[in-house]
């Protein structure tokens, strides 16, 4: 009995220690910071304990940021779905022996630094950039380019998180039995009806898993809105970043991080078990 216990726990020990040291302990510290008092010296968060940071974080003044963050994350998720589903479907259905190559191509941008790629977007989107120049030929250019707009932020986020959507969708498409589509046609369903009644329910687990993988990090991202967005593009993530990096208010930053975490946990719980086959 003891030996079995030792064996089981011995196997768990490396993971347990890893999670304990590098996941749980920092999380605990963040929670502690969130209940601490702000210090304007170098300590940043000190005793006594207080809930002031939560009161500030839940202030109605922060509501616009909250809504904006959700809007960005939601728009990003929808854009990733619209782009990712046809791609995943194509790769699994028509990829043939190039499937692996096509999947690798989706992942290749990950080989270079995200920051460098966002700076590349900055160059593409600014007033004299390629995007504005090309749109200028058909009279759709904009003074100052498309940098610092809501569109730029959603574009950057979509670009960054698309692979997270494609991979689970690909797995779902791969598992989907294509004969069902033929059967549906045989039984008289049209294209639209087949898509909504047969294909979509069949790959729903992938859609849910992919949406979650995009929605959650997109809601927490701060680099993209900071670099591509302007004055009205600050999000939950960038406000947290401000509280820490500007050194303004660590307790407030921590409280906001905890609230974001709670929100994510709620989403995960609401997800239920439907997405778990793929995720």
């Amino acid at each position: 009995m003891l030996r079995r216990w030792l064996k089981a726990n011995g196997l768990l020990a490396p993971t347990g220690i890893w999670l304990g040291l590098f996941l749980i302990a920092p999380l605990v510290v963040v929670v502690e910071f969130s209940f601490a008092t702000r210090d304007t010296g170098v300590a940043r968060a000190v005793l006594p304990w207080t809930t002031q940071a939560y009161l500030t974080a839940l202030d109605p003044a922060f509501l616009p940021i909250f809504g904006r963050t959700l809007a960005y994350a939601g728009a990003t998720t929808v854009a990733c779905l619209l782009l990712g589903f046809p791609l995943a479907w194509f790769i699994s259905r028509h990829g043939g022996r190039y499937r692996t190559v096509l999947l690798a191509a989706v992942l290749i941008p990950f080989w270079s630094s995200y920051l460098a790629r966002i700076y590349a977007w900055k160059a593409l989107l600014d007033g004299e950039g390629l995007v504005n120049t090309v749109l200028g030929w058909v009279g759709l250019d904009r003074d100052g380019g498309f940098l610092l707009t809501h569109g730029a932020v959603v574009l950057g986020l979509t670009y960054g998180f698309l692979p997270f959507m494609v991979l689970p969708l690909y797995v779902a498409c791969e598992r989907f039995d294509f004969r069902l589509v033929e059967a549906s046609y045989d039984l008289g369903h049209g294209r639209v009806s087949t898509f909504f009644r047969i294909v979509l329910p069949g790959v729903m687990s992938g859609v849910l898993a992919g949406s979650l993988l995009v929605l959650v990090p997109a809601a927490g991202d701060f680099v993209t809105p900071k670099l591509l967005g302007g004055v009205d593009q600050s999000t939950f993530g960038s406000v947290i970043d401000d509280q820490f990096r500007g050194g303004n208010n660590w307790p407030l930053g921590s409280a906001m991080a905890v609230l974001l975490l709670v929100l994510v946990v709620v989403v995960l719980v609401l997800r239920g078990r439907r997405g778990e086959d793929v995720l």
């Binding site: 347990g16 304990g20 749980i24 605990v28 510290v29 502690e32 170098v42 300590a43 968060a45 005793l47």
Partner: peptide, 22 residues
């Protein structure tokens, strides 16, 4: 349960992260 136990233990361990203002 495991996470709970772990976090309780670490709450004790990491309590030194926040101290009185110097």
């Amino acid at each position: 349960r495991r996470t709970m136990l772990g976090s309780m233990a670490f709450f004790a361990l990491a309590a030194c992260a926040v101290g009185p203002a110097p």
